[in-house]
Amino acid sequence: MAKGNNRSLLLAGLAAGAYAYFSKQENRDKALVAFNNTKTKVNSYLDSQKTNKMGMTKAGHSDPHDIDDNNMVDEGAMTSVQYYNDEVQSKLNKSDKKEVDETTTFENHI
């Protein structure tokens, strides 16, 4: 029962403090300006989040009719394929040269 009384007293104290603060026109004006500034900032933040979500939903879901996006995806795929081919071919070329060098060296010794 003591908790309920403490809460009631706390709420009554907050209400009395708010009434005393907002009884002056100057304080009401300050509070209104602060509220409007906060509202503007929150709306701006929410709008920026909406913009980011629209950009994120496009990622990974290319539109077949979006030529620029498809070209970008195509170029990206070709870059990775080209890198893989260069790595594999360079390893194959090194191993082929090594085998040729070993054969030549062996034949020279006979």
Rank of each mutant, 00 (worst) to 15 (best):
N52Q: 12
I67N: 09
N27T: 06
G4M: 09
Y21E: 06
Q25T: 10
M78E: 15
D96G: 03
D101L: 02
P64I: 00
K24L: 04
M54I: 08
I110N: 01
V73Q: 10
T79N: 12
V73I: 14
K97A: 12
G76T: 01
G76Y: 01
D66I: 01
K30V: 04
L11Q: 06
A2I: 11
M56H: 11
D86C: 04
G60Q: 02
I67W: 06
N52F: 01
G13W: 03
M54W: 04
R7Q: 13
I67G: 00
N52V: 05
L32C: 08
L14D: 04
E87T: 14
K41D: 09
N85Y: 12
L32Q: 09
V33Q: 14
D29M: 08
Q49P: 00
L92R: 13
S44E: 15
V33K: 08
K58W: 02
D68G: 00
Q89N: 15
K53Y: 05
S95G: 05
A77I: 12
I67M: 10
A59M: 10
D66E: 09
Q25L: 07
D68S: 11
M56R: 15
H109R: 02
K98C: 06
D86Q: 14
G76V: 01
K3Q: 13
S90A: 15
L11K: 03
A18L: 15
V88L: 03
D66Q: 01
L9H: 04
E87F: 03
L14V: 13
K91S: 10
Q25A: 11
D86E: 13
P64E: 01
A12E: 11
S8F: 05
K41T: 09
K98P: 00
L10R: 04
M56K: 14
S48K: 10
L9V: 12
L11E: 03
T103F: 03
M1E: 11
G17F: 01
A34W: 09
A12F: 06
A31Q: 06
H61T: 07
Q82D: 13
F106L: 04
L14W: 00
L14Q: 02
L92G: 07
M56V: 06
G55L: 03
L92S: 09
A34T: 10
G60I: 01
M1P: 01
N108H: 12
Y45F: 08
T57M: 11
T104E: 02
A77T: 14
L14P: 00
S48R: 08
A15H: 10
V100T: 11
T38H: 07
V73W: 08
E102L: 02
L10C: 05
D47G: 09
V73P: 02
G13M: 11
